[in-house]
Each structure stands twice: as C-alpha cells, then as structure tokens.
Write a protein that binds this DNA or RNA. Structure first.
Ligand SMILES: [Zn+2]
Ligand SMILES: [Zn+2]
Ligand SMILES: [Zn+2]
Ligand SMILES: [Zn+2]
Lengths: 154, 154
DNA sequence: GCTTGACCCTGTAGCGACTCAAAGGTTTTA
DNA sequence: TAAAACCTTTGAGTCGCTACAGGGTCAAGC
C-alpha cells in the first residue's frame, strides 16, 4: 500500500509517517518504480503500536525503547515494565503540578469577582505581588517537560 | 541596572529577558554608551508580573493581553477575569486528560506484573491491540497544546 | 600598560513532535 | 488530454526558551 492508505488505516497522516521514518521509528519502506513508498501489513502494525504509545503521551524516546524490546522477544521485559512505571510517574507528577496550579489560579480569580476598572482589578494586582513565587518546579508545558525544562536555575 | 542584575532580581535570566524584548512583552530598554541595555524599576516590576503569569502556565499571548489591560487602567477588567476563567479551564481540562491517561496506563501496567520474556510481555501485547484508540482528544503536550495540536484530523 | 575574567552585544541553531507549504514528478479519472 | 489527486524532497514554522559562536566593553590586579 502507499503512504496515504497506511495513514488512513492507522488514523495517522502521511507527513507524520515520513517524520517517523526520518526519526528511525518506522523502518524505511521499499520504493516503487516511481519512487513511491510501499508499505506492508508489518508497517501498519508497527505504526499502530506507535500511535497507541503516543496516545498514552509517551515520548518518541520511550517508544523507541519499547520497539527495541518488541524486536528482541527473548529478552526479559523487566525494563519495559520499569519504563511504564516511570512514565506513569511522569503523568502523576504533572497532574500534581497542574492541581497546584489550579488552586493558585482559583485563589487569584477570587480577588476580582466582579468587573471593575482595570486599575482596581484584583487579578492584575495579585499578579503584581511578589508573593506568588512559591511555586516549586512548575510552569511545565508537558508531561515530560518538567524534566527537560527545570534545568533552569530560578 | 544592567541585564544580569535585572535577571537576578526577577529570578529570571538574561537570555529570557532579551527574548521577551524581541517578543514585545518587555519594552525596549534604553542603551548605555557602550550599547548595554539599561533597565529601571518599572522594567523589573513588569518582568516579575510576566514571571508570575508564566508560573501559572499562561501563554505569552495570554500574558500580552493582561499587559494591555495593565497599560490601560481605565478600561473595564471583565476581559481579564474572562481570560483567567478560560485559562483555569485549560488547566482543568488538561488535568482530566491526564487522569484518563493515568487510568489507561495503570490498566496496561497490570497486564504484566512480573518480568517475563518480551515475547510474552502483556504490556507490549496490550500496546499492539487495536482497542486502545478510544482516547478522545489527548496526547497533548501542554496545557494549551490541546488546542494548538488538536487541529489534526486523526 | 596589560592581561584576565566577568560582563555585554548580535545572530543563529536547537529542543519535541509534528505541521504546512513550495515546487516538482506520477497516476488516475473525466 | 487535461485536470485532479496523489507522491516526492526540502525547508520553514510552531512555543518558550536555551545555548552557543564570535565578537565588544569594563574593572581589577600585576
Ligand atoms: Zn514518560
Ligand atoms: Zn478584575
Ligand atoms: Zn491558558
Ligand atoms: Zn512485561
């Protein structure tokens, strides 16, 4: 099959598939006479696997590790289980950060229940106070970014 | 003061400050004879405001809006309050997505409580099943990315 | 006076995981 | 036969920084 059919079957899209090939997640497809990529059922299976992992918010690095284990079925899967445990920890930690964030935001929101002049807005005022800085290791964009981003000193 | 002192006082760093200037969040500093940026207390105040907003995981776009209101104190702050409500919604939605993710990950983890051969690993097997696709609008990297990213068709 | 080191500047590239568009080649359909 | 619908490569854009590289400036110590 050609790339757009593979994309349709995996509910992915062609550009993502080419990207995965560049990144080495998907092995290079064979080519037709006119240089079109030709895929097999094995490619589809692998792409679906990747998609499931991405649905679970794993990084491509984590997925690469899982794929290595899929490729060597005789090895012990302890590392797979450990990877999943760690990833669960990534998600749990991020949930905690966001819950703390929600608390802070709701506190702030209560500073201005009604519409006033901006000069008297409790929210703008609250954001100007130096007291808000207590947040520990937050403002993390993604589930993983808490580790990548927090190499800042702050 | 020069840029690194501003950075120290705001617990930020010089490169970020220059980036904010490029992005128009911080007004251009005046320059010394030797072309160094020279900052005032007003810059510090504004930078601290920005930092608080970032600590609350707002985007630079959201922050830009808030800064506009700070700059025009006679306007009604209803839009500020609305922006905050929407941002709280961003966070709440992301928490929900991540909780669903955590459930799915824990389900998957239970498929392989012990270390086996990778060929028999319940996790690798679970990820290969086509059943996992139920997740609705997920695999979203950040609090906001759920809106930016989900313009994909999937 | 001279060197060292700590600053400062601009400009560019990189991160992750794509997404989009340009500019062209091929295949299918009307 | 011509238009539409594919396919190809390449390069740039997203977000919020961070990290160079390759320079200029400045204060202190010798
Ligand atoms: Zn993870
Ligand atoms: Zn208000
Ligand atoms: Zn928001
Ligand atoms: Zn296992």
């Amino acid at each position: 099959m050609k790339i757009s059919e593979l994309a349709r079957l995996a509910r992915s899209n062609a550009e993502t598939i080419r990207y995965y090939e560049r990144e080495g997640l998907l092995s290079k497809a064979s080519r037709s006479e006119s240089n079109y990529r030709i895929y097999t059922a094995a490619h589809l299976e692998r792409l679906i696997f990747i998609k499931h992992c991405r649905n679970l918010d794993m990084t491509l690095g984590e997925i690469r590790t899982l794929l290595r284990f899929k490729a060597s079925p005789e090895e012990n899967c302890g590392e797979v289980n450990r990877l999943l445990d760690e990833h669960i920890e990534h998600v749990v930690r991020r949930i905690g950060e966001l819950q703390e964030l929600e608390r802070q935001l709701r506190d702030l929101r209560e500073c201005c229940p009604d519409g006033r002049q901006a000069a008297a807005c409790g929210i703008l005022e609250g954001l100007s106070q130096p007291s808000l800085e207590k947040t520990p290791g937050n403002h993390v964009p993604g589930v993983h970014a808490s580790f990548a981003n927090n190499i800042n000193k702050s």
